[in-house]
Design a protein around this nucleic acid. Structure first.
Length: 1045
RNA sequence: GGGCGAUUAGCUCAGUUGGUUAGAGCGUUUGGUUUACACCCAAAAGGUCGGCGGUUCGAGCCCGUCAUCGCCCACCA
């Protein structure tokens, strides 16, 4: 056998391990799964990342957690399938590609046309899908890569068509004119969920609308206020509340009521609001144009409206009706409101109620159209300026106020949203939503943590119809064909016997909608008519809603669908709980009749050092690859899992490291998007993940460094070295044991440390399994970290060292080392797959040999070393090994060891100097500790000279009083009496405080009311404390004798 | 306006059903190349658990309230 000590480097090298084992797993096809009737299925579908760009740390967390669960389930014997894939992310991807097209070539999509643009998006998609998949592989994700899906591929497209067709047939799809959020840059509607609000400073313009032919005592004009004056060109009415008096009184009463219950600090504002509202009953207002009270004024207007009077719309110079509608709030603004049905959602509702004309003044590109008269062709911004100027010139502008407004922006293009009237396809949500609500309410789908349930239910409860059309080119085209002019008979004849064709009459537009389930219809599909397909594509979520079943082959009843569906758990982050998760539940139920998954686990969000979420647009998203490059994939995974606690978002501080001189370059808001950074110390530029140009790409990349990853990297290295130790110790020439010895080992009472480590291992196995099964990843990591480092390495391995040089005790030590390490590796494998595989493969050789040759009867020698740790059985806790008594005893040993070490450290005893100590304790403790003497020698270079009740301190010793025992460390000439005294006095003071609090506790109601066991525990503690105090006092007295005697 | 979460050591965070005078890592200080590991070992210092009040024999934990921060949803002529 070769000597492998040279072959095992002192530092774990993640790069070679990653490369080697990724290829190995791939070659062995370990992550490929297919239905297996002999095993239980466990399936996870990846939340498909958008192909808009590369993955960042948020994805790294998401996929790490998935992989941990998936790998554990696989080891637990489930037939485990993790389906990877990416999302076409319609609007987002098209936006990115269009933006780039414009930036680089100054071209718009209309310049290059539909086909060319789509071709470019496909190229983009190919590039990023490749990048994303390679990122996932680098992270060690154990997906079944043969089953990689794309939301726009044939399999998904088929599912989309079937879903749409099914909805259409059941009359759950309709088309109607709706006010949509219009993105003027991308020229598409976006859903409410794709809109964010940003605070901007705007203005509030007060505008006069002259009353036509005012009668005596009637105002000559009405003042309305608006933040968007240009929309007045589309005004079709001015509204006032039908009964301003009672409306106003109601508001006042409500305010008064609230004033009584509201917290003190809010009272001021509320009182102010109340005063202002009450003023409307009395004094004359500022902007209403006469001296009546606001209320009188509004009452007059309401009466005028009832008479059917009109006002003149300035600039457009046309009369519009004065109407009454409850939407006009008498307590707000001037009490009158202009109605622009085509450009304001509320006004649109008013318009429908009052049957007002709807005048659209906008073009799709955000300029004004011919309805805006002379303002046609101007952008909204320009038009606004001109409208205001013209109003002022004509004396129609009363006043302007500055005002902070929350302006809606498109999440995709970051430009302001214009409410825009457009034809739109919708899905009726009523029943679908209710079904999805019930599924969660009745516990069929469990949301973890539970607090997220509320958001899910609330959102669905609104049952707002789902606008599914997008005026884009990238996506699933809506499978509807329009047919004008044909009779139903003609259509029926054209599609006779076709179950995959369905049609409906659109009475609003006098057109037939023909929906086709599978094939695209030809222009002449209805003889004598030319049919045209709808241009719009479907909302991205329409296809991702099907993800769990479409990826398994639905609508076909594939073996996969029957076997793996419903999937096990969906692991995702909270922002898409409604957009995606809710829709998956409703679509899954609708299509398959079954829920898509049993559980949903929502994990925390990754924030940057400023506490901001990572996003592509902010540029603070960090590529996990740049962390892997520096610390390795295992470190990345371990760190992320360690931070994945239940309710705290994860703040990650990451900085650049100069690849040349190692200088830390702090990441700032400024430099975080730069393609290259010049090292402030050595002056050499290095590239970042944002490098685009060829020259930047030529530079060496500066890795991202962060404390959490360093800790995790160190942990991996610690594990590596523990394994290195075990491997090297297995190299020691081994003596054949006699049959007697083998039997002896088998039946021998294990050493205390053996029984201790086995007890701890059993507990840790149980804890880790439970934690992971409940998605408490951080807990599991803590259990593993603490056990591996503090218990296995710092104690067990250290203690075993002295046994390894003793032929008669060696084999058992080796056996247990390999057993514990084997188990630990398997527990760690889901989170750090590479380093555990690397060790596993090295250990395998010896493990099997040890089992074969030495200890075939010993259960701890029965380590199974499968061909890969990825398919090794998940450890099962040996409950019989849990021994609290042993653990308590071991704790005494640890305490004692620490006491001796502390004395050494505080007295600056040179490391090579051997010291002696003795311990006063009862007989059973003495019996327990006596065999541990070698460990004190090896671990604290301290020789025990005596144990038992009769032990007394020597004059020149340092006394450490512990619970139930006193440690006397002999110091002779090293003793510093003054320091020793000070130490004891401090200890006595501490004990005094402690004792005092216990005494007062035990003299109060505590004894009477607290449970007996708790009281007993406190009593015992008090006794111990008093004993310790006694010992300390005694030691102090003795010291004084030394000095004075 | 509605909802959710957070506030614990210099920093980043744990802390189970309420039960010893609250833990870890990093950083700091001291001492160390003890044949796995300096990405290491041994040890130390460091906290009135955001403030106030309450419930309780007992509160970091439960209740109320105030303060600060973050996130989500909704709305504002």
């Amino acid at each position: 056998m070769s000597n492998p000590s040279d072959e095992i480097p002192k530092q774990y090298n993640p790069n070679t391990a990653q490369e080697k084992w990724t290829a190995f797993w791939d070659k062995k096809n370990l992550f490929h799964s297919q239905p297996n009737p002999n095993k239980k299925p466990f399936c996870v579908v990846i939340p498909p990342p958008n192909v808009t760009g590369a993955l960042h740390m948020g994805h790294a967390l998401n996929n790490t957690l998935q992989d941990i669960t998936v790998r554990m389930k696989r080891m637990q014997g489930f037939e485990t399938l993790w389906i990877p894939g990416v999302d076409h992310a319609g609007i987002a991807t098209q936006a990115v590609v269009e933006r780039r097209l414009f930036e680089e070539e100054k071209l718009t999509r209309h310049d290059i046309g539909r086909n060319a643009l789509i071709q470019r998006i496909w190229n983009w998609k190919e590039q990023y899908q490749t990048r994303i998949i390679s990122q996932l592989k680098s992270m060690g994700c154990s997906c079944d890569w043969n089953r990689t899906r794309f939301t726009l591929d044939e399999m998904c497209a088929k599912a989309v068509r079937y879903f749409f067709f099914k909805l259409f047939e059941q009359k759950l799809i309709y088309r109607g004119k709706r006010l949509v959020n219009w993105d003027t840059l991308l020229q598409t509607a976006v859903s409410d969920d794709e809109v964010f609000h940003e605070t901007v400073t705007g203005n509030f313009w007060y505008i006069k609308y002259p009353v036509i032919e005012p009668k005596p005592n009637e105002p000559e004009y009405i003042v309305v206020a608006t933040t968007r004056p240009e929309t007045m060109l589309g005004d079709t009415a001015v509204a006032v509340h039908p009964d301003p008096e009672s409306a106003l009184n109601k508001v006042i009463n409500d305010l008064k009521k609230r004033l009584d219950t509201v917290p003190e600090k809010e009272k001021n504002d509320l009182q102010k609001e109340l005063n202002e509202t009450e003023n409307r009953l009395r004094s004359s207002g500022n902007n209403i144009g006469n001296n009546n009270s606001v209320l009188e004024h509004l009452k007059t207007l309401a009466r005028m409206a009832a008479e059917g009077r009109h006002v003149m719309l300035p600039l457009a110079d046309k009369p519009i009706p004065l109407i009454t509608d409850v939407w006009a709030k008498p307590e707000k603004g001037t009490g009158c409101v202009k109605i622009t049905p085509a450009h304001d959602p509320n006004d649109y509702e008013v318009g429908k109620r009052q049957e007002l004309p709807v005048i659209n003044i906008l073009n799709k590109n955000g300029t004004l159209n011919e309805n805006a008269g002379k303002y046609a062709g101007l952008t909204v911004k320009k038009a606004r300026e001109k409208v205001v100027a013209d109003l002022e010139e004509r004396g129609m502008l009363v006043s302007v106020e500055e005002r902070i407004i929350e302006l809606a922006h498109s999440d995709r293009s970051k430009t302001p949203i214009e409410p825009f009237l457009n034809d739109q396809w919708f899905v009726k949500m009523d029943e679908l939503a209710q079904n999805a609500i019930d599924t969660v309410n009745n516990g069929e789908v469990k949301i973890i943590p539970e607090r997220y349930k509320k958001g899910y239910i609330d959102w669905l409860s609104e049952k707002r119809d789902w606008p599914i059309g997008r005026q884009l080119w990238w996506g699933h085209r809506i499978p509807i064909w329009y047919c004008y002019g044909a009779t139903e008979k003609e259509i029926e004849t054209a599609f006779a016997g076709r179950k995959d064709i369905s049609w409906q009459w659109d009475s609003e537009n006098n057109v037939w909608w023909i929906c086709s389930q599978t094939e695209d219809l030809a222009e002449d599909a209805v003889p004598g008519y030319k049919i045209v397909q709808e241009d719009d594509v479907l909302d991205t979520w329409f296809s991702s809603a099907l993800w769990p079943h479409s990826t398994l082959g639905w609508p076909e009843q594939t073996p996969e669908l029957n076997y793996y569906y419903p999937t096990g758990v969906l692991i995702t982050n909270r922002d898409i709980l409604t957009l995606w998760v809710a829709r998956m539940v409703l679509a899954g139920k609708f299509n398959t009749g079954k829920k898509p998954f049993h559980e949903v686990f929502i994990h925390p969000k990754i924030l940057d050092k400023y506490g901001e979420g990572m996003s592509k647009s902010k540029g603070n998203g960090i590529d996990p690859i740049s962390v892997i490059a520096k610390f390795g994939a295992d470190a990345l995974r371990f760190a992320l899992a360690y931070l994945a606690t239940e309710n705290q978002d994860i703040r990650l501080t990451l900085d650049f490291e100069c690849p040349y001189c190692g200088t830390l370059v702090e990441q700032t808001k400024k430099n975080r998007t730069q393609p290259k950074i010049i090292c402030p110390k050595c002056g050499v530029p290095f590239r970042t993940q944002w490098a685009e140009t060829e020259s930047d790409k030529m530079l060496t990349e500066g890795p991202m460094i962060g404390e959490r990853f360093e800790v995790a990297r160190n942990f991996c290295n610690k594990l590596w070295n523990a394994a290195r130790f075990v491997l090297l110790s297995l190299q020691e020439p081994q003596t054949e044991l006699s049959e007697t010895d083998k039997r002896k080992i088998h039946t021998e009472v294990y050493f205390l440390e053996d029984r201790w480590i086995l007890s701890r291992l059993a507990t840790v196995t149980k804890n880790v399994t439970e934690s992971l099964e409940n998605y408490c990843y951080a807990d599991a990591m803590r259990f593993l970290y603490d056990f591996a480092w503090d218990e296995f390495c710092s104690f067990y391995v250290e203690m075993v060292k002295s046994r390894l040089v003793d032929e008669t005790r060696k084999t058992q030590a080796q056996t247990l080392l390999i057993y514990v390490l084997n188990t630990l590796l398997r527990l760690l494998h889901p989170v750090v797959p590479f380093v555990t595989e690397e060790i596993w493969q090295r250990l395998r050789l010896f493990g099997n040999e040890l089992a074969d040759n030495k200890l075939t009867n010993n259960k701890f020698a029965e380590n199974e070393f499968t061909e890969s740790i990825a398919v090794a059985p998940w450890p099962v806790a040996d409950e019989s090994a849990v021994d609290t008594e042993i653990e308590n005893r071991f704790r005494i040993f640890q305490e004692l060891l620490r006491a001796v070490r502390e004395v050494r450290a505080s007295r600056n005893v040179p490391p090579k100097t051997e010291i002696t100590f003795s311990v006063r304790c009862n007989t059973s403790t003495a019996t327990l500790l006596k065999p541990m003497e070698p460990y004190f020698l090896s671990m604290a270079k301290a020789k025990a000279t005596g144990w038992g009740e009769a032990i007394k301190a020597s004059e020149l010793s340092s006394t450490v009083p512990l619970a139930g025992m006193d440690v006397y460390v002999d110091l002779s000439d090293l003793i510093d009496v003054t320091a020793e005294k000070a130490k004891l006095e401090k200890e006595i003071a501490r004990l005094d405080g402690f004792i005092k609090s216990k005494e007062s506790k035990l003299s109060g109601d505590f004894v009477r009311k607290a449970p007996a066991t708790v009281v007993e525990k406190e009593r015992q503690l008090l006794t111990e404390l008093q004993e310790q105090r006694q010992s300390a006092t005694e030691a102090l007295r003795k010291l004084k004798t030394v000095v004075h005697g």
